[in-house]
Design a protein around this nucleic acid. Structure first.
Length: 748
DNA sequence: AGTCAACCACTGTAGACAGCATGTC
DNA sequence: CTACAGTGGTTGACT
């Protein structure tokens, strides 16, 4: 007995909208079950059902009905910025019902009060946590919280953020309906119990998914079918081509960037060599050109465009975001038919393919060697298989090289249940971060209130803290240790059992950096006062454990250890005595110095391709460093201000801007104020004698075009912009000559 | 002398969230 | 301190 949209207790406008605009007349079985459990009547529900089983759609309907019927707000929280924007696009359709929808992420918009006027607010976990720290008045209007990708609760760093969100909401006395969504969770009952939610868990899929193992030349599926795959090279290529020839698309997951590139090359060759017309050559060429232009690295752009011409590509975090988005879009439009990717795509935006090939089920992990990937991750990748509307089925394929391995893979992955989600809340860093957060934001000021906060966490119920005395004592000792650490760091104070954040602690809380990093920064800043330069400030900034470091390779160890030793006394937070040369102890410092030095070269306008080559990095890595340092240097500057190190605060502010634009101080003003001007054009303008906004405002299009890289359109726009800036007086000024710019050798 | 296969030692290994202030069509 | 693939150098057999 199918449940019809028309029968649901929803406002008529919404029902009509769903039927006409969303073209849905009835519910899928999992949706039906969720409705019976009361998801549309305010009941909290955890839905663990496959991708494309309509849980997102149902959550949308629940959100809109919450807004329309209850006149309350809905918050949707997701793990990735890209997902937030994807959800925003999905929700936008409902704007014609008069519903106001927005997304708020760290980069998108940050004024909490401004969110007041929206009904549906989509955020990342961290952004929502940050909003909860500010406690804007409109939180009282929130009647519903939708947590997407609920299995992130098990993520070692991000899971505790979700726990903290839930606990803070309870402490605020809010009782929103909670809707948790995930495709793969082992202990779904437990999580639902913790959230006080009903559980809907099914394997139902609109498109059947078969999972199987390929053992040359046969591909055996868990539904008993077995097909022979025509061999056109190595297993991965054969499997992909087999799917392509049948009219599908393929995604190959690899365990390293380099193998993603390698596989993509093989796929491109196979497609271009193929007799059958597998791609739209013209569209592929157009996309190839687009990608080439979008890539700031010529090398990478050329490599990619060559592959895309043949309808294949690779995808990993070494690529810039814009390039990745272009590739994803081309795959969606079937211009790219086969994609080789690292885990970027496994957990990312919605990008299904008929056949998903798990190229490596083992991955290198530092300190552990090659490890089998978790079942959870496999299921996440497998869930990408099957594109609604295009594919009659989806297939996920593992590759075995012998009989025994084939059987093992069936046991290990195909027939396995995903791992249980286990809270990491009581890990030191997470605990310190969240304790400071509740004390500084006024959620707790004594042990009783801290206990209230902790008792709402998943960890508390998972570790049976309430009932297990030994567990409780061990974990409470850790809480004490962390409180002590926060006191010693000068972030909180205690008197008569009452805790309060210091101005420094408030700043750490506000800037959202973790207390360990903050403590390093505070100590480092005090030490550098009076002898700070761009190198040692970058070195300090990069020390945050949140920043992955560039790796020092075998051949360059001498170079970096030498530079390190010569700089020893000028660098912050160094051990008083030099560790032994051959020791691994030197390595972390060398990595920090190498990373800082790359960014030093970046702000001194070293050509990007040359820079990346020299440091063996890729454009996406550089963007990541710029992004992270923009945030961390901002926080560091704020800490310096609180510490009354005014000169240092200003200097760091300047450094931050230079990192953001990758430019020396003299031409920064141009890049900073003018749309369409980055590090390269700013330098060209400067060299041609246009050194300030005034110079440009007083120039003519013809004169401006004498600078390299400035065409007629841009020249006109620049003059217009400059004139406007002069009129409004809104020029962001930059202090001159703050520090002579030089490379590493100038600091030795 | 030049070529090339076979072998061996060495090297490197995924990803991505967060602040603030202030204006603006 | 785990395992694997790719790389680059050396060796030694052969033309």
């Amino acid at each position: 007995m199918t449940m019809l949209i028309a029968d649901l207790s929803l406002p008529d406008v919404l029902k009509t909208f769903i039927e006409e605009k969303r073209n849905a007349k009835f519910l899928y079985p999992p949706q039906e079950e969720a409705v019976r459990r009361g998801i549309l009547n305010g009941e909290s529900v955890v839905m663990v059902t496959s991708t494309a089983s309509g849980k997102t759609f149902l959550a949308e309907v629940a959100a809109i009905s919450n807004v329309l019927i209850n006149d309350r707000k809905t918050i949707v929280t997701v793990p990735l910025k890209a997902l937030a924007y994807e959800k925003l696009m999905d929700f936008k359709a409902y704007e014609e019902l008069g519903i106001r929808i927005t997304a708020s992420t760290g980069e998108y918009d940050s004024d909490d009060r401004w969110l007041e006027s929206f009904d549906v607010i989509i955020t990342t976990y961290e952004k929502l946590d940050s909003i909860l720290r500010h406690k804007p008045a409109w939180l009282g209007d929130v009647g519903q919280l939708i947590i997407d990708e609920l299995h992130y609760l098990g993520d070692p760093e991000r899971g505790p953020i979700i726990e903290s969100i839930i606990s803070k909401i309870k402490l605020l006395g809010l009782t929103p309906q909670i809707i948790g969504l995930s495709a793969t969770i082992g202990n779904a009952e437990e999580l639902a119990g913790w959230l006080g939610a009903k559980l809907v868990k099914t394997n139902w899929r609109p498109i059947p998914l078969r999972e199987g193992v390929y053992l040359r030349p046969f591909l055996s599926f868990n539904d008993g079918t077995k097909i022979r795959v025509r061999e056109v090279g190595d297993p991965v290529t054969s499997l992909a081509m087999d799917s392509l020839n049948g009219g599908g698309q393929a995604i190959v997951f690899t365990s390293s960037r380099s193998s993603a590139v390698k596989v993509a090359k093989q796929l491109a060759k196979a497609i271009c060599d193929s007799q059958s017309r597998l791609i739209d050559v013209e569209a592929a060429s157009r996309t190839a050109e687009e990608v080439r232009r979008a890539s700031s690295s010529k090398l990478l752009g050329d490599e990619l465009s060559q592959l895309i011409r043949c309808g294949a590509s690779f995808h990993h975090a070494g690529l810039e975001l814009e390039v990745r988005r272009l590739i994803e879009e081309a795959f969606r439009q079937r211009i790219i038919r086969a994609l080789a990717s690292t885990t970027t795509l496994a957990a990312g935006v919605n990008l299904p393919a008929r056949r998903v090939i798990i190229g490596d089920y083992r991955r290198y992990e530092a300190g552990e060697g090659m490890v089998d990937i978790p079942v959870m991750e496999y299921k996440q990748m497998a869930g990408r298989a099957g594109r609604p509307g295009l594919d009659p089925y989806g297939e996920a394929v593992l590759i075995a090289s012998n009989d025994r391995e084939a059987r093992r893979l069936f046991d290990l992955y195909v027939n396995a249940e995903p791992e249980n989600v286990v809270s990491r809340f009581f890990v030191e860093e997470n605990l310190a971060f969240n304790l400071l957060s509740i004390i500084a934001s006024g959620y707790a000021s004594n042990m009783n209130e801290i206990n209230d906060f902790l008792s709402n966490t998943l960890a508390y119920s998972q570790y049976r803290i309430a009932s297990n005395v030994i567990q409780r004592n061990a974990l409470m000792r850790r809480v004490d240790d962390m409180l002590k650490f926060l006191i010693e760091s000068g972030f909180i104070e205690e008197s008569n059992g009452e805790f309060a954040a210091t101005p420094l602690g408030l700043a750490v809380n506000k800037t959202y950096i973790d207390p360990y990093t903050a403590n390093d920064y505070v100590r480092g800043l005090r030490e550098l006062n009076g002898k700070a330069n761009n190198l040692n400030l970058l070195f300090l900034a990069v020390k945050s454990r949140k920043i992955p470091k560039l790796r020092v390779k075998r051949g360059e160890e001498d170079k970096w250890s030498d530079a390190l030793v010569r700089n020893w006394s000028r660098l912050p937070l160094m051990p008083p005595t030099l560790p032994d040369y051959d020791d691994d102890e030197l390595n972390p410092f060398m990595e920090e110095l190498k990373t800082a030095t790359m960014m030093l070269d970046w702000i001194n306008e070293v050509d990007e391709d040359a820079l990346l080559k020299q440091y063996d990095a890729q454009p996406g890595d550089l963007r990541m460093y710029i992004d992270q340092l923009d945030w961390l240097l901002g926080a560091m500057s704020e800490l310096a201000r609180i510490l009354k190190l005014r000169e240092l605060a200003g200097r760091i502010g300047m450094l931050r801007l230079r990192v953001k634009y990758g430019i020396k101080a003299d031409a920064l003003e141009l890049a900073l104020n003018l749309e369409g001007i980055g590090r390269t054009r700013a330098r060209e303008l400067y060299r041609a004698g246009f050194k300030s906004i005034e110079d440009i405002a007083n120039s003519t299009p013809a004169k401006l075009q004498q600078a390299r890289g400035i065409g007629p359109t841009l020249a006109n726009s620049l003059i217009e912009q400059a004139k406007k800036l002069m009129e409004t007086g809104r020029i962001t000024r930059v202090p001159r000559d703050e520090e002579p710019s030089g490379d590493l050798s100038d600091y030795l």
